[in-house]
């Protein structure tokens, strides 16, 4: 990408949009995350990868408190996000999230899936919300499906609807939790195209994904996690060509080698 920062390891932007420091999380005695430190600047695209069970999803789910952390600090746009906080809804509205299994509401039409959030949270009128919804459905190339129900769509179409649903809240950052892992191979490209367009439009993104082509093309930085820790942070070129740690070398050889 031409607009990538020259100094990738230390982004220059003044205030990071997301600041994670000393983040820890346990499930019972199992340490899922330990001492995670990561700053994400405005407009930055971060790809998180690592073996399954390495804590990638748990980390990004802590950012909008779908998982509650037990130690450390998370700041989103300068505001601290912590367990049990009041008005967590206000924070979540600024954070779009796309899930592996889409999680569209099956009893609502596509357009209702998109408008329910803005109508309930922001008190936006139904007609305004519908207008916004149609705009984003066009952006994910699926406006002709607006009146259908999610189960009538293919996986790739559902995931694009899910992306549009998140965008309708005009979030400051988008979190992607393995968005293409549950898709048939032929529908993955459509979803990745939408994500690339979104990245080109300047959206701040944290993507947990194993799509290495996407990471090369879009990511400003690649974060490699293993056993609940961040093992390596590097720009995609040096990460893929010259991984620094044994664990990342092993992971890449397994992922690319077959």
């Amino acid at each position: 990408m031409p607009d990538v920062n020259s100094d990738l390891m230390t982004p220059i932007s003044t205030t990071p949009l997301v600041e994670i420091s000393g983040l820890c999380k346990w499930y019972g005695k199992f340490s899922a995350l330990f001492d995670i430190n990561l700053n994400v600047s405005r407009g930055e695209k971060v790809v998180v990868c690592g073996p399954s069970g390495s804590g990638k999803s748990t980390m990004i789910r802590c950012i909008n408190q779908l998982e509650e952390h037990q130690a450390g600090r998370i700041l989103v746009d300068g505001k601290e996000v912590k367990p049990g906080m009041k008005n967590i809804e206000d924070v979540r509205r600024d954070i779009g999230m796309v899930f592996q299994s889409f999680n569209l509401f099956p009893h609502m039409t596509v357009v209702d899936n998109l408008t329910i959030g803005p109508i309930r949270n922001k008190g936006i009128s139904k007609s305004d919300a519908t207008e916004t919804a149609m705009h984003f459905l066009e952006r994910v190339h699926i406006s002709e499906q607006a009146t259908k129900y999610p189960p009538q769509l293919s996986g790739g179409q559902q995931q694009r609807v899910a992306i549009a649903r998140a965008l309708c809240l005009k979030p400051k950052i988008m979190l992607f939790d393995e968005p293409t892992s549950a898709l048939d191979p032929e529908t993955i490209a459509g979803v990745l195209d939408v994500m690339i367009e979104l990245a080109d439009g300047g959206m701040t993104m944290i993507c947990v994904t194993h799509e290495m082509g996407f990471a090369r093309k879009v990511a400003d930085r690649v974060v490699f996690m293993d056993h609940g820790e961040i093992v390596e942070i590097a720009d995609p070129k040096s990460f893929f060509n010259n991984p620094q740690t044994d664990r990342s070398q092993l992971f890449l050889s397994q992922l690319l080698g077959h």
Partner: peptide, 19 residues
């Protein structure tokens, strides 16, 4: 996943339950 999606788009517990 339905709860999580509802919470992720900022619906309150009550709205997630109702809608």
């Amino acid at each position: 996943g339905q709860w999580e999606a509802a919470r992720a788009i900022g619906l309150s517990h009550f709205n997630a339950l109702r809608d």
